[in-house]
């Protein structure tokens, strides 16, 4: 099953954030709760965890781009 990784709500007034660094590459195995991405708002940087255990199938938004809250950033394939 494909599980999307979404840009989370990062604060009351934040509408978009930067994908600062992908800590995993496409094809890497990821575990639920593992930190796989660093995103940055105007105020802070934070690490985003994998929502499920599986393989990082596709990085949708590349490093350095901005993405709005709720955007699909990557797809994780489980099983």
């Amino acid at each position: 099953m494909d599980i999307p990784l979404l840009m989370p709500q990062l604060g009351n007034e934040t509408t978009e954030a930067e994908l600062t660094e992908w800590l995993k590459s496409e094809g890497d195995a990821v575990t639920e709760g593992e930190q796989i991405l660093v995103v940055t708002t105007t105020k802070l940087s934070m690490e985003i965890e994998a929502p499920a255990t599986g393989v990082l199938k596709q990085i949708v938004v590349p490093e350095g781009d901005l993405a709005e809250i709720g955007t699909t950033l990557a797809i994780i394939a489980t099983e």
Binding site: T15, E16, A17, E18, T42, K43, L66
Partner: peptide, 10 residues
């Protein structure tokens, strides 16, 4: 522009 796209006061 949004604060992510232009230089802010911060």
């Amino acid at each position: 522009l949004s604060a992510m796209r232009a230089i802010t006061l911060r």
